[in-house]
Design a binder for these strands. Structure first.
Lengths: 158, 158
DNA sequence: AAAATATGTCAACATGGCTGACGTAAATTT
DNA sequence: AAATTTACGTCAGCCATGTTGACATATTTT
């Protein structure tokens, strides 16, 4: 039995690791509360978000963003299609593709899910200087897998 | 059907929201890879981590940190006890309490799970100025629920 | 014509959340 | 001393969301 704590003195990274855990824990609690009213979960949230951010996105792109299997995505996608939050359109060039677009309801849901997170993040950013904000952004960016950073930069538009 | 993307121009918070998603996605992929070798999941990781950080922690405190139910915690805790990664000791003052301590194996596992995250976070911090690092820390801190911040500050030791 | 690609689908399974109720032992309050 | 509260464990069952691997179809590319 070990009595000595694993301490932040041993490793200066530990506070950041734990802050990331706690921040993420609370960060997703906002949309979670909204989602229960729709009978949806976090997986639906992610799909709704990225389809609204990139109308016409392909299923394959969504899989690459979410890093989940086709089966898992297929399940929630079907529910969102059935529920009238997302529409499929055959790709005009490549007709194998099913391009995904939000409906009016889908856009409304995306905005409802976004609102509390904007508030939370906005309030946090308000407390920071310009350089501190840059620090937050660069910190997160460098945590992403090196091979994914360019893709993410393109996705978020900077 | 809506064709206009929900844009970062509409809302300056969106890039941060998405970076947080992508950073967290990759951040947990490291320990996930280690855990499969033990037949454990993320829930075990969290328990192992906080028991190693705070040897002698009570079950109730763990529940408050993880924000999960007693039932969910009980399941993984039992597996960690059975596997010899954690030991229980009756509380000396209050004998209703079961204080949790890591075993040697539990400490070793905690360090194995920590190592890749330290590398990832450390490499990210190395790219930042002192003020940027401060920004990253303050950003995360302010994302945490206001009512939880003091508790978290105590837990992470600053 | 053959091969590769984009997508969907099937069955089966595991993890880890949840609820609500109930039990026990120990500490605290009345 | 009795009643209440607290800390913890446990039971049964449910749900969301992740996994694998195989297979089907339409379409595009070679």
């Amino acid at each position: 039995m070990i009595r000595e704590p694993l301490s932040g003195a041993d490793s200066p990274e530990i506070p950041y690791i734990e802050l990331l855990f706690f921040a993420y824990r609370d960060f997703i609690s906002d949309p979670d509360a909204v989602l229960v009213a729709y009978g949806f979960g976090r997986a639906h949230h992610r799909v709704i978000h990225f389809v609204n951010r990139h109308p016409g996105i392909r299923v394959a792109d969504l899989l690459d963003i979410l890093k989940i299997t086709k089966q898992s995505l297929g399940r929630v996608l079907k529910q969102l299609l059935d529920g009238g939050f997302i529409e499929q359109v055959q790709g005009p060039q490549d007709r194998r593709q099913r391009l995904l677009y939000p409906t009016e309801a889908g856009r409304a849901l995306a905005l409802r899910l976004l609102a509390p997170q904007e508030r939370r993040i906005g309030a946090s950013l308000d407390m920071l200087s310009a350089e501190e904000r840059r620090g937050a952004e660069r910190f997160l960016r460098m945590i992403i897998d090196a091979g994914e950073r360019d893709k993410v930069a393109r996705l978020i538009g900077r």
